[in-house]
Design a protein around this nucleic acid. Structure first.
Lengths: 176, 176
DNA sequence: ATTACATTTCTCAGTAGTGAGATAAGCGAG
DNA sequence: CTCGCTTATCTCACTACTGAGAAATGTAAT
């Protein structure tokens, strides 16, 4: 089964074990919080559900989602600085080193020095890496598409647009 | 920084390293796939961005998101069979045992036998666990609410409704 | 009752990462 | 030039899980 972690905050009407409100606050805030918490649960579930399909698909080739994401971004955008890849696929700094190491060990990716900046290094697909992505990508795109069929394509665009705002705002906001 | 794993599939116009299309397919499918892949990226990013705020908030009390999710669901719904908690917070079967063990070690949760089914066990908050959730929840709800401010509350409801369809469909679909 | 199967939790070896700090290089002001 | 700050990658000890399978119990059909 698919698996991700998220809170459950659906207080369905009065069946909650703790209905008493200790601090009465503004009704607007209450409504806003309810919407936000509900969306958080649903967002987590939707992400988990889709991710499990994506994961199951890439796992067939012995890759993790993070590995596949790297291969894919290098395939579609060409060689890229490690830091750039890191920001794109959202792993930690240690993570990108680790993942590129592993992909290098598999012969799918290689590091290249950067002439302009001797601290920096490029990640680039090797020919076998390129061949692998070319082979895997169509089926993967199809798996994602199938998994997304719960929503019509035009609704998908609406959701995407809204989630983009949401994500940008949250990413921009400094962590507490 | 926040961190999650997801593919990057944004082929912005023609700067892609691989623009040649090998197999010409139906334009509808092409459009559908583009929408689906784009949504997958954006969904992943939005989830990661919000999750990092949620994570930073609960981490202040030395809890993981999964632990907090368990405490919260037990707080709001009362004692619950382990399997039920597992399905709600979406962890593996091993995960729920492990997490409840850890919360038990922290004195926040206890197991109770089930009279009707001797295989099954309840998870329930201890008084300290209940007190902790009562103390943490308001600030946590606030953190989530703040993180979600990229979208107006009514838009949040629209997105939530759509994501619910998406998630239910994907969760129902058997994995390949 | 017996057999076969399903469900619930637990076990545990394994893994995919994280994150804090180290190292090295570039960058700008004085 | 050189001091202080920033940026890019790497190191490594650590962790929060996963997932496959075991054990125990329930359930149903013959």
């Amino acid at each position: 089964m698919s698996n991700t972690t998220h809170p459950d905050t659906s207080r369905s009407s009065d069946e909650s074990a703790h209905a008493e409100v200790t601090v009465p606050r503004s009704p607007e805030l209450e409504v806003e919080q309810e919407a936000a918490l509900r969306l958080w649960v649903i967002l987590s579930r939707a992400h988990a559900a889709i991710a499990s399909h994506a994961h199951a698909d890439v796992a067939r080739s012995g890759l993790t989602l993070a590995e596949f994401a790297i291969l894919e971004v290098l395939y579609h955008r060409g060689p890229m600085l490690l830091g750039e890849v890191q920001r794109r696929i959202l792993v930690s700094s240690g993570g990108i080193t680790f993942l590129v190491d592993r992909l290098t060990a598999k012969g799918l990716v290689e590091r290249r020095n950067c002439d302009k900046d001797r601290r920096a290094r490029y990640a680039a697909l090797t020919p076998p890496g390129e061949a692998l992505v070319a082979e895997l990508f169509p089926a993967h795109a199809d798996a994602i598409t199938q998994a997304m069929r719960g929503l019509a394509a035009d609704d998908q665009q609406v959701v995407a647009e809204m989630l983009r705002s949401l994500g940008l705002h949250a990413a921009a906001k400094p962590l507490p």
